[in-house]
Design a protein around this nucleic acid. Structure first.
Lengths: 346, 346
DNA sequence: CTGTTAGCGCATTCAT
DNA sequence: ATGAATGCGCTAACAG
């Protein structure tokens, strides 16, 4: 049984295709009997209108493209979860593209998405290893075609579109302040986010908190790492450099790995060194000691992004004033930090 | 600048659309000069053929639908990763649908996917809460339309299609044998997979291992739980029931949660109770003590499924003999179990 | 009430 | 070397 089309139904009943189409749409223009017959036949033979033809006709696809750097990262999965939820509610499907942190793949994927397959895209960009110069172009391909786009989390500052960002400045500030409030004196940062905007914001927040407490930031305490870097080595030289008692790490998995290494070196957490991470996932919760983290509310970011995008897709007039939503973070205190009241006890 | 079409280019050059089409495809039928002009113009104005129109014309979409029960489950994310990798290599996109363990959503999603949006689907079904009677129908909708489908992991026995399964029988057997080899006497199972096929296979493997060692399986030691069940309660009554010294848990997150509870009750792992889980994710690796798990090789399952599906999509003749691939598991020994050689030491 | 026509955007015969 | 015509599957004006 090959796929049933209106044409096939039409020839079966010896009527025209438009009659069939109308009957299936329950038009009042068709006689009740014929309508009933056609609809019964359609149901019986499991007729389904071809979505592709409808897409072509309607000039929309009711699907949105989601581009993320790494599908194995729990933060992005949380966002995905939020996006999927809203998309489903509002009648959209999502097609997911993973760039694996490769700018080439990002370009390829965006090229694909700008060819009419989706009504809009939600994207978190790759870490800008290759300089920021040409990272503009592949986005303008989308934008030129008036395909709505919202960037989340890892946004590009100067691209004009809707954005959903974490309040990373505040997050850096809050975390650092928490270290200080729990008695830490020398706080380091491990940053696996390269020179990204959000990384810089977190660092600025960190510096502000330090300054407020009369501590001059020391750039040697801020170490940027790559995925392939040897964590053991970096943490080793970091701990050799100064008597660090607090480390802020921008990524959940890196946090857990480093806590592991540090403990195996004989340090006690949080007695000797306190830790705060990002992405409040299961890992942070169940590692020992459980990790204090900044929750970025990934699911909410996804929901907000999807809502904004679909609003933009469906709005009549395009008032071209783009919105940037800032999502507040929260600090989830667990065992990898001292308690504020324990301050001095240690 | 609204989207550029062949028609627009044609009228710009005062030629026909077919000329433009041929020029863009670098046909030898078109004069070099005109061809050059048209192609330059197209490139300059960033022309891209409308994918939807192409899909309609070609009667395929070069995208595959992936249906998973829960996107927050690391196992499925691993599979997704594998699928995405192969799909990308072979020129396909993936559209991901999450059913959230709801049969209604599964039906809805499959209905959508059978309307021509994808060339094939890869699916892991929801846990069959609602009896197995009607779970047949929504699949036949797909199959009737000759849309290739491969089921992975949580497959349905009697559906005729390609399948990629874990060797769950062997997994249950291996895990149980490992418990026994490390000195455990009374091994329980916690099964969050309902009455699913794979759950039953694992249990059969477990029973075989017990029998081989002269232990009569006790069904009271096999407890099936739901997502909303109170883990604290179930583990409590389980431990009250008998002097259990080994627990096999079919899900990574449940494993970690239960290890947490058990430790807070004062038990030592693995001294008092050993644990083995499934899904070899970061969680199992970094929890304390690190968890011995059965790795199902999620990424490989994804790769295998995608390869099989695309083969099926692209094959000329459909030799309707479906294949069931069985993926071997491996046991990753960590700290939540005693070492085989430690046997008797404890 | 039903059919004819046209078009969504593109590619592909077949004429010229 | 170029164009006209046809069709992918469907819907919606507009006729009849």
């Amino acid at each position: 049984m090959t796929k049933l089309t209106v044409k096939a139904i039409a020839s079966h009943f010896n009527v025209s295709v438009s009659t069939v189409s109308k009957a299936i749409h329950d038009s009042h223009e068709i006689s009740d009997e014929l309508k009933r017959n056609i609809r019964e036949y359609a149901k019986l033979n499991n007729y389904k209108p071809n979505r592709v033809a409808l897409n072509l006709f309607n000039r929309n696809t009711k699907t949105i493209g989601v581009v993320i750097p790494n599908i194995l990262n729990y933060f992005f999965v949380q966002v995905l979860y939020g996006i999927e939820k809203i998309a489903d509610q509002r009648g959209y499907s999502i097609i997911i593209c993973s760039t694996n942190e490769s700018i080439e793949k990002e370009i390829k994927v965006l090229d694909f998405l700008s060819s009419g397959t989706v009504d809009g895209v939600i994207i978190s960009t790759v870490l800008g290893e290759t300089g920021l110069t040409n990272s503009n172009e592949h986005f303008s391909a989308l934008l030129d075609r008036q395909i709505p786009m919202v960037m989340f989390d890892r946004v590009i500052e100067f691209i004009k579109c809707d954005k959903v960002m974490v309040d990373d400045f505040e997050a850096g500030y809050l975390a650092t302040k928490y270290f200080l409030d729990t008695g830490c004196k020398i706080v380091a940062i491990i940053n696996p986010l390269g020179n990204s905007y959000i990384g810089r914001l977190r660092i600025e927040g960190y510096k502000k908190a330090l300054c407020e407490n009369g501590i001059g930031p020391n750039d040697k305490l801020i170490v940027t790492i790559n995925y392939q870097d040897d964590l053991e080595l970096t943490i080793h030289s970091l701990l050799d450099f100064d008597k660090i008692d607090g480390i802020l790490i921008f990524d959940e998995l890196t946090l857990v790995k480093i806590m592991d290494i540090v403990q195996s070196k004989g340090y006690q957490i949080p007695k000797d060194i306190s830790f705060i991470g990002f992405t409040n996932g299961e890992l942070s919760k169940y590692v020992t000691p459980s990790a204090t983290t900044i929750s970025q509310h990934g699911k909410f970011i996804g929901e907000s992004s999807a809502d904004k995008l679909i609003d933009r897709i469906e709005e009549e007039c395009d008032t071209c004033n783009f919105e940037t939503r800032i999502i507040k973070t929260s600090l989830i205190a667990r065992e990898s930090t001292l308690k504020p009241k324990e301050y001095g006890k240690a």
